[in-house]
Design a protein around this nucleic acid. Sequence first.
DNA 1: ACCGCTAATACTCAAATTGAGTATATTCGG
DNA 2: CCGAATATACTCAATTTGAGTATTAGCGGT
Lengths: 325, 325
Amino acid sequence: MPSSQADRSSAASEVEGLALFAELSAVIIAASVDEPMVLVRPDVPVDTLPAGPLQSGHRTLEAGLRAWVEQQTNLHLGYVEQLYTFGDTDRIDMPGRGGRSLSIAYLALVRALRASARSGARWQNVYTYLPWEDWRDGRPAVLETIETYLKTWVKDSGDAGALREKRAALAFGLGTDSWSDELVLDRYELLYEAGFVREARRDGETTPLTAMTDYPMGLDHRRILATALGRLRGKIKYRPVIFELMPESFTLLDLQRTVEGLSGIRLHKQNFRRLVETQGLVEETGELQTETGGRPARLVRFRREVLLERPSPGLRLSSTKRPPN
Amino acid sequence: MPSSQADRSSAASEVEGLALFAELSAVIIAASVDEPMVLVRPDVPVDTLPAGPLQSGHRTLEAGLRAWVEQQTNLHLGYVEQLYTFGDTDRIDMPGRGGRSLSIAYLALVRALRASARSGARWQNVYTYLPWEDWRDGRPAVLETIETYLKTWVKDSGDAGALREKRAALAFGLGTDSWSDELVLDRYELLYEAGFVREARRDGETTPLTAMTDYPMGLDHRRILATALGRLRGKIKYRPVIFELMPESFTLLDLQRTVEGLSGIRLHKQNFRRLVETQGLVEETGELQTETGGRPARLVRFRREVLLERPSPGLRLSSTKRPPN
DNA sequence: ACCGCTAATACTCAAATTGAGTATATTCGG
DNA sequence: CCGAATATACTCAATTTGAGTATTAGCGGT
């Protein structure tokens, strides 16, 4: 389609000299029964996500990502989905490097925690980096600090104050007793804007979080992680992606704990099972898991057929206030 | 964070010579009351989406996109969201051009249909390019052809046949009488794989669609459009994005028709209003619209405050079988 | 002034889904 | 054989849906 390229080519030539650099980065999530884990490469002074530059040999972006991850961590990825492409000059570009960087981020889900020694990648609890997101044992303590901090931020902002206040109230459920598990990115963005997270500071200035054993991440990586967690929390509600994290067979409680870990909230046990069963998401293996401490649990497996039956068989979560499970 | 860059830099240098070219492209949607429209540039022999290369002057990707669109179409964008980054070598790269192309696609929603003459962009009905997606007047006729075509494709595929059959059945609701409005991309991908759409053919080979006044789009643009439509159809169900397309004041039926246009299905009128009202999405302006043909309709406006009240006030659509609205 | 057309708006009702429990069944370790 | 601990089953009221029917208000004629 040559003629359609006419004006584009000329426009392109204006920037033909622009050195463009595209990085493929991966948020790789796995789940021990109780904690969601992310694979990181411990660099000094910060942790970074597995990543590598797009190369001409990569037929597709996803293939390129898989290749890098396999090379860096010796891990073969199953489920992969594109997350977002980051490209703000002030947050992505490395100082000293000419040209322009793009970061194409992917979310990957894997079953086991076979972290590989090659390059020393290791699994870290997701909530290490986003400690305010875990409400399974009640309101996280950091939120006290955050709330105080945000209040100052709202006060110090004159006219914009009213809007900031509402945004903060909505994202963090201030005032109300409600918490939206999916607003991960909104919360991160607020904390970034407010200068609460370390990467929002140009200088080495400390922030309240620094004092609280903050685990910083390189470049935009905490933002990418927040994007991934928010997306995943949303997706488990209408697609059976959670099973990408489960072993071949598991108990319904294992499943519930995994979902709770990712969502950061507790669920109503009886209703959770009802949901899983009526949706036909699992089938019995016939075996029992006896190390439960009580009555043995049936082992089940994911019914892959549902993928070809209904279009959106997810797990609409019904949360519970008290945890009397 | 210099040390964290160590191995990355070396990897990068392997491809420092790779000429990377990033294009920002926009699916700009507007809505006349009855039809969803997309802004295209009529190139010969195909239509293309507004697009331009990422330049060093662009502080953010979104800013770059806005700049290109303003320059090419004289249109100022309001709501903009990133859609997807395409980069498969065989679908994106332009023959004859060395190096590698990325296409970072955005979805934009605008209120009016002020197409601009600059560069001759014009509004086209979205269903011109995806005619099988519009079920408002019953099952679209093209689906007969598609069904026949897909059956042959399934037959000609040996072992993979069973899977293909199920995929097709799920995406197009074959066998059942159900239709999932959000599976736009799945359907497009199937038609692409099956060689039904023109752009799937390397040579000038015709396809059944060619014969049926197909309006082809350049490069990957029909795929991008499908991505956009699917995303939008999903999003109106849990975010009040539809109001980005509505004028300042409108009637509830206007709103319903607009939603129907985008979703491609008919809705139950009474329940639609109930939903809009109980969600508190609109407020009365006090005025009436008298050119209705019957009882005058109240004019309402979007209650922007909801954005700061509830986290996901969308329009869960309840479809209807017959259109006795 | 009133009729009938048309569409807006109001109200109804059964079915399905949800939220929150209580009740019963099975193991295990003494 | 008891009690602790869990799994699994069943219940029930409150909402939320899906699908209608009923009523209201202008308009264009006569």
